[in-house]
């Protein structure tokens, strides 16, 4: 089922990328080309194959519960656009 202009608009909003109205058709075309091409996977018999969750076959490493980080407000906000003091700032959110 090919993507419509509306689908593209919806996905673009999910991804928070503004796509100008006049580009929607072209992008729908490109995405449909790619989606149509990857759909060839449907012909692979996958039956009860487990989906790959990790190429690294080892247990998840766990760290100790000690405070080793933080107290670097200057560093974490060093690149912030338009901060307010030690805070990041964004256009006002109305809840």
């Amino acid at each position: 089922m090919p993507l419509s202009k509306d689908d593209v608009q919806k996905i673009a909003f999910l991804a928070r990328i503004r796509v100008p109205e006049e580009r929607l058709d072209a992008i729908a075309g490109e995405l449909n080309g790619i989606i149509g091409w990857v759909e060839q996977l449907a012909e692979v018999e996958t039956g009860d194959v487990e989906p790959m969750t990790s190429v690294v076959a080892m247990p998840a490493p766990l760290r100790d519960d000690v405070v080793t980080d933080g107290a670097i407000a200057d560093k974490v906000t060093a690149n912030a656009p338009d901060p307010i003091g030690p805070f990041y700032a964004v256009p006002k959110v109305v809840e």
Binding site: I11, I34, A42, V44, T46, T53
Partner: peptide, 28 residues
């Protein structure tokens, strides 16, 4: 383009057909 494709293949209703399928093929 890739971000949009990625969002699409993970989205509700398509996740199994695309993402899970791909990870199964990856196992193969």
């Amino acid at each position: 383009r890739r971000v949009l494709i990625g969002a699409y293949v993970l989205s509700a209703g398509y996740y199994d057909a695309y993402y899970v399928k791909a990870q199964k093929v990856r196992s193969l």
